[in-house]
């Protein structure tokens, strides 16, 4: 393997971008070497890419289970740790326990969803990364990691699909 370079091109339009990515695949550039950045969420696979499996659902479920157990401990466990009779009722009561367990389950689910998605995205990450500021102004950026020998071909492909600002990508402060 020779030295790799990062090449970035900007596109106006999603169909051009998808076509360009297809051409890149034909060049045997593996999928993980291509990164697409957009200012608008395009539907999954609209740009000819596969989506990856996520750990999110597992994180959320684990969070929910933790919350449930915490709720059970507070609603059922703590009254038995320090029993005090109130209102002529048993120490452990059903309906209030249901409310407590429900709310704690929900709280933990919400927090774990939030932490889970940040973790999945690798956020926060403020180090310099390949990026172009025109992405949020409506351009689609395609970042390709390739061998130096491939640069010219990729340049041609991008230009053929109305790409512009094609240059070796810079890391910038985010």
């Amino acid at each position: 393997m020779g030295k790799t370079v990062m090449l970035m091109g900007l596109f106006h339009e999603s169909t051009d971008t998808a076509d360009a990515i297809d051409r890149l695949y034909e060049m045997k550039i593996p999928e993980e070497d291509i990164l697409v950045m957009t200012g608008v969420p395009y539907p999954e696979q609209a740009l000819g890419r596969h989506s990856e499996w996520q750990r999110m659902p597992v994180i959320v479920l684990v969070g929910a289970l933790t919350g449930f157990l915490l709720g059970v401990f507070l609603a059922v466990g703590t009254p038995t740790l320090y029993p005090l009779t109130v209102g002529g009722r048993p120490i452990i009561t059903g309906p209030p326990a249901a409310v407590i367990i429900f709310v704690f389950t929900m709280m933990a689910t919400i927090v774990s969803t939030f932490l889970g998605v940040l973790w999945e995205m690798g956020f926060p990450s403020f180090e310099n990364k390949y990026y172009h500021r025109l992405v949020t102004s409506g351009h689609l950026a395609v970042l390709v990691e390739c061998l130096e020998s491939q640069v010219d071909d990729i340049h041609t492909i991008m230009e053929a699909h109305n790409g512009h600002h094609i240059q070796s990508a810079e890391r910038m402060a985010l």
Binding site: L84, T85, V86, G87, G88, R89, P96
Partner: peptide, 11 residues
């Protein structure tokens, strides 16, 4: 009694 959040009243 049951409505007190801090068990300030109990039986």
């Amino acid at each position: 009694e049951p409505v007190c959040p801090v068990f300030a009243t109990y039986h």
